[in-house]
Design a protein around this nucleic acid. Structure first.
Length: 480
RNA sequence: GCGCCGUUGGUGAAGUGGUUAACACGCUAGUUUGUGGCACUAGUAUGCAUGAGUUCGAUUCUCAUACGACGCCCCA
């Protein structure tokens, strides 16, 4: 049997619906923030990543999917989204667009040649957003707020924003030297990895898991101490805007982004959920004012953010967030003989065109098996076609919830179903039982009043004055 | 790149160096129920990731490979 490639996943069934839902929420949110969707190629010239991300980093030297195509071109599967967006920004001269800054978002697969582990695959899907062409601290705050709002909208509650600044290039270099100076006398007491990190990337020592309790590390100089006045002012502005937007965050001086092009604002967003593996960062980003210029474009200040969809889905599952995913069908049409089957074919066609989710039998099951199938599909209504009824221009429709059966004239069938399904539906049962077909009488504890599934994520507290995180369909009383 | 553990049917899994690989769920058919959800009966892996080795004999032992899980490194 041919197996899938290491670190790649097939996403199907319910999980695929969750992914699709996440995508929809992203699109809806980005529309409100007025970001334009951008699609760039999955592979680019290897040089783009080498020059953009850094020649010596692990990312480029050992973790990328490099190959040569038949024309001898050096190609790399994109390991992240920003480089491609920046390349496109330059190549399409978006900096000349009168509509500045340029705000774009992407959502697609990325590739990195790594050993898979929890929350980390070789093929991953990332959503990301970028603002190119503004150095305003408000854009930093906007990116962070959009990220937080996305997670809230999806229904995630346990998230934490870690915020830091690296300052401008001058501040950053000064700080780097200070760190090396500071750690050098003590480095023998640190772990092997830290010894390697000292010259290569001293900032990462701050993030070391082995030495995190080392007193020397705790007293290490902070980035904030090495900021010049301009950088400090800038950082304060970002915080001020975040406060105004009522975005919660925590200053964490140990947040360091690995790549050279980052400066000023950097942040990571963690999912603080029980059961998450060691990779619990669901999104991260920062400012990269130097990158466009480094890739032969005009000096352009930018800020961006990226988030792994896989990790978001994992967080949604671990938090048991209730999602508005359609998992049941409106009507299952049953039949026994060929004549009825033909009518079933006709009726499914008609009703689907009328907007209903309709299924029928395809595997030759008997009536008993068809009823079972209807149950498995959570059919709201079932109907058994019967030649006699059809001759009378009628059909028997059974409400699978109330068990009531009615004989409906075919002329008014669509009207009847519309009435029953779209107006008269009830709240989903929320008793928590796992059975396909629950018979308990518990009421849904969702607070919304009109029968739609609340998207708040489990229990809707709209009536209690809590912050509403609902999407468009919620009719709770906060009026969002 | 490194480390640790794992891989048995549609699913969850038990299990053993030796003729029929437990049990449960699911599924299919039948009985019964005025057309299903209950109950009962029957069926449901020539097969234990792949390859090689040890052995009279391996799913069970050894090695290699692939894949999975978790962690390290690194993190876009």
């Amino acid at each position: 049997m041919i197996q899938r490639q290491k670190g790649c996943n097939d996403i199907y069934g319910r999980e695929a619906k969750v992914w699709k839902y996440v995508d929809q929420v992203i699109d809806a949110l980005m529309e409100k923030y007025n970001y334009n969707y951008i699609r760039t190629p999955i592979f680019e010239a290897t040089e783009l990543f080498h020059r953009g991300v850094g020649e010596t980093t692990d990312i480029v030297t050992k973790e990328s999917y490099d190959f040569e195509d038949k024309g001898g071109r050096k190609i790399t599967l994109r390991p992240e989204g920003t480089a491609g967006v920046v390349r496109s920004f330059i190549e399409n001269k978006m900096y000349g667009d009168p509509n500045q800054p340029v705000k774009v978002y992407y959502n697609g697969t990325m590739y990195r040649y790594e050993r898979p582990q929890s929350g980390r695959d070789r093929e991953l899907t990332q959503f990301g957003m970028e603002i190119l062409g503004s150095d305003d601290p408000l854009t930093d705050a906007e990116i962070i707020s959009a990220a937080v709002n996305l997670y809230k909208m999806l229904g995630l509650k346990e998230i934490k924003v870690n915020l830091n600044t690296l300052g401008d290039t001058e501040s950053r270099n000064k700080y780097r030297e200070a760190l090396i100076e500071y750690f050098k006398p003590h480095i023998k007491d640190f772990c092997e990895d830290c010894n390697e990190r000292l010259e290569k990337n001293p900032l990462r020592i701050l993030d070391c898991k082995v030495d995190k309790d080392n007193e020397v590390l705790k007293k290490a100089p902070k980035t904030l101490d090495y900021l010049n006045e301009e950088s400090r002012d800038r950082f304060e502005k970002v915080q001020e805007y975040l406060d105004i937007m009522q975005i919660n965050y925590e200053i964490n001086p140990n947040i360091v982004r690995g790549l050279d092009y980052y400066n000023h604002t950097v942040f990571e967003i963690e999912a603080k959920v029980e059961g998450f593996g060691s990779n619990n960062v669901i999104g991260a980003g920062g400012r990269y004012n130097g990158l466009v210029n480094q890739l032969d474009g005009p000096e352009t200040p930018c800020v961006g953010f990226a988030s792994g969809i896989g990790r978001i889905v994992m967080a949604l599952e671990l938090e048991k967030v209730k999602l508005p995913i359609v998992e049941d069908i409106d009507l299952f049409i049953m039949y026994v003989n060929e004549e009825e089957k033909k009518y079933a074919a006709y009726l499914t066609q008609e009703l689907r065109l009328a907007g209903f989710i309709v299924e029928t039998e395809y595997t030759g099951r008997g009536l008993k098996g068809q009823f079972k199938q209807a149950d498995r599909l959570n059919a709201k209504f079932t109907c058994v076609l019967n030649s006699e009824d059809l001759n009378n221009n009628e059909v028997k429709i059974k409400n699978n919830k109330t068990k009531e059966e009615e004989i409906i004239s075919l002329d008014v069938l669509i009207y009847y179903l519309d009435e029953m399904i779209n107006a008269g539906s009830e709240d989903e049962c929320d008793c928590g039982c796992e059975h396909d077909h629950c018979h308990c009488d518990e009421d849904c504890d969702c607070g919304c009043q009109d029968g739609k599934e609340c998207t708040c994520g489990g229990e809707c507290h709209c009536n209690e004055g809590k912050e509403c995180t609902c999407g468009d369909d919620c009719h709770c009383h906060e009026g969002k």
